[in-house]
């Protein structure tokens, strides 16, 4: 069971603690059940993949986790706190950060300003501090700037700090989203198809980036269609089909699961 061939080093045995727990999560839109009684646990320090064919409900699960949707039934618990009913920005401030499937950057702002968004909730300065430009406000701004630049350095976009986000290459836009998410200093990073639209080289670099994020002690949950990335980066997989969970386990084990082969891997080439 522990034979998972991942690029990331094996996780510490036995001392695992659940960071995120989904229990019986259900969400319907009109008559359609997008997510159907899904339960799984993300262990602290792990890299978990959420896979499944298109329309399986993966992104809906993400949107439930970050509070963009409210579940009809079921519970989500993060580090012992129930997330149910919390607004998105509150959930972010508890230590979950995310990226979006169809890149959502602040297009007409600079790369640096985009990352500063992630620093926002840990800052205090309000209207008055800004108008009076208090020393504490200036210090805070400088700190945030330093932190943002560090995250840009980390993802390799330091040189483009003053470029407008919309002028970045596609792969760079994905990396900028990750930098913005990291700037919130999350415990759990939720990535929605991080390799979407990336070429082979970029995907290779992304796998390296995911490993480095993990080395910082950040737990990762990701949706991905690129099977090479999933097999190499993740040490645990959850497979969804038609809103329900059909398999769970180490990548090698999931890959051999007949149900998974039927539902998903049999049509892998479409991904």
């Amino acid at each position: 069971m522990m034979e998972a061939p991942s690029v990331v080093s094996g996780r510490p045995a036995a001392t695992t603690t659940p960071l995120l727990t989904l229990q019986g999560l259900t969400k319907t839109f009109g008559g359609l059940t997008a997510v159907d009684a899904v339960s799984f646990v993300v262990e602290e320090g792990s890299v978990m993949g959420l896979i499944g064919p298109n329309g399986a409900g993966k992104t809906t699960v993400f949107n439930l986790i970050t509070g963009n949707y409210r579940p009809d039934r079921g519970r989500i618990e993060f580090a012992g706190t129930s997330l149910t009913g919390l607004r998105t920005h509150r959930i972010i401030s508890l230590g979950i950060a995310r990226t979006f499937q169809n890149i959502r950057l602040f297009q007409r702002l600079t790369v640096l300003e985009n990352v500063l968004a992630g620093c926002h909730y840990r800052m205090r300065g309000g209207i008055l501090a800004a108008l009076l430009r208090l020393p504490s406000q200036r210090r805070e701004e400088n700190d945030a700037m330093g932190r943002a630049l560090k995250e840009l350095e980390f993802v390799g976009l330091r040189q483009q700090a003053l470029t407008l986000a919309k002028n970045l290459a596609y792969g760079d836009q994905r990396r900028l989203e990750i930098a913005r998410a990291l700037a919130t200093r999350p415990r759990l990073l939720v990535l929605d198809e991080p390799a979407g639209g990336m070429n082979e080289q970029e995907t290779e670099a992304l796998i390296g980036l995911i490993a480095r994020i993990r080395e910082r002690g950040i737990t990762i949950l990701l949706i991905e269609h690129d099977m090479r990335l999933v097999m190499r980066a993740c040490e645990e997989l959850v497979v969804l089909e038609n809103g329900g969970k059909i398999a769970e386990g180490a990548p090698e084990q999931v890959r051999r699961d007949p149900k998974v082969i039927e539902a998903y891997l049999g049509t892998e080439d479409e991904a």
Partner: peptide
């Protein structure tokens, strides 16, 4: 300032702004 930037994030993409905390 932080306040001014927050308004801009709102204008550019409300979902991403909320999703950035």
């Amino acid at each position: 300032s932080r306040f001014g930037r927050a308004l801009n994030y709102l204008r550019e993409d409300e979902v991403a702004a909320e999703g950035s905390g």
